[in-house]
Write a protein that binds this DNA or RNA. Sequence first.
DNA 1: GAATGCAGCTCCAGTATGTT
DNA 2: AACATACTGGAGCTGCATTC
Length: 401
Amino acid sequence: MMAMSCKDGKMAMDNGKYVRYTPEQVEALERLYHDCPKPSSIRRQQLIRECPILSNIEPKQIKVWFQNRRCREKQRKEASRLQAVNRKLTAMNKLLMEENDRLQKQVSQLVYENGYFRQHTQNTTLATKDTSCESVVTSGQHHLTPQHPPRDASPAGLLSIAEETLAEFLSKATGTAVEWVQMPGMKPGPDSIGIVAISHGCTGVAARACGLVGLEPTRVAEILKDRPSWFRDCRAVDVLNVLPTANGGTIELLYMQLYAPTTLAPARDFWLLRYTSVMEDGSLVVCERSLSNTQNGPSMPPVQNFVRGEMLPSGYLIRPCEGGGSIIHIVDHLNLEAWSVPEVLRPLYESSTVLAQKTTMAALRQLRQIAQEVSHSNVTNWGRRPAALRALSQRLSRGFQ
DNA sequence: GAATGCAGCTCCAGTATGTT
DNA sequence: AACATACTGGAGCTGCATTC
């Protein structure tokens, strides 16, 4: 229903009555807006002349329409941005709730054990006041599976190792295998839920981090599985064998040899088993394990100045995030063998803590960089936009020169 | 020539009102 | 209620005339 009057063929407001433009007129205006959202006064008059369907609209109304159209677009963009922020905060909240739940269970377990030990201590004190007693104290800590005997590099053997690697990695990534201790100075935030390190009681030293990235899991896996930070000091990385697995994953057997350019940098030489798998819940796992020394690999003669070490099951657990994007858990678990270096340097290698933390921090930085590139490309990736938008961007660029 | 005042125009944020 | 259209007031910019 249109309440308007036509004076001299022009559509004009009838004493404040409401005017509704026809769908054809709106379509024409939208086209013009996409071409140029801020036309000058001269350009608007030109549009009215060139576009017969707009010829009965007053220039002032055209001006108002463009103003309102810009306002609408701004509001829509802001609403979209707020929705994205909301989705991200919801995902973060979920993660924190999970972490909180896990910590509460841990507290309950420790309280229970504390009560048990207290009672046990009292009993032994009373019962063995003047007799010696060896009480076996078991900590509440979960231990990793013991080292397995060497196996051959046949497909069956590799599959078996890969499956164990996967199980061990998942138990670390989901926080059930070891007790993680928050690193000082690492506060939870939008970029990092937290980065933590194992203190004692497990083989080697590990670090763990968690973050959000606005990419689908498969894309994240493609980017992260080549982890350049792990290969920075490699002399060679060769794919020796690729094996399909029952659940659609792939095992790649890599050989890499690291060496120490300086005496301070730990170096290793080992085979590296890489395992990529799709889980039932839709998450992806990219994890790795070295097969150094104790297991069959290429026969490397002992080389002086090399530090032997083992990469325990490490990698990424990439879960799809509600509302888009992915939640990524990073685990690095290393065990350098200090006996293989001269005694004077041994303190430098006694713990892999620094290396594990450094590696995990590098992975976290990579995640942040990916997240930044994704958000940046949404703004600047004009190369894939339609020609009209590219033209608009060029016009705007010229306008600011 | 520089400084000043004024009119005219546009933009934006906010608001009123009609329509769906 | 959500959306579309029109209006209002404040701010900024530009061009022009006037004054010093």
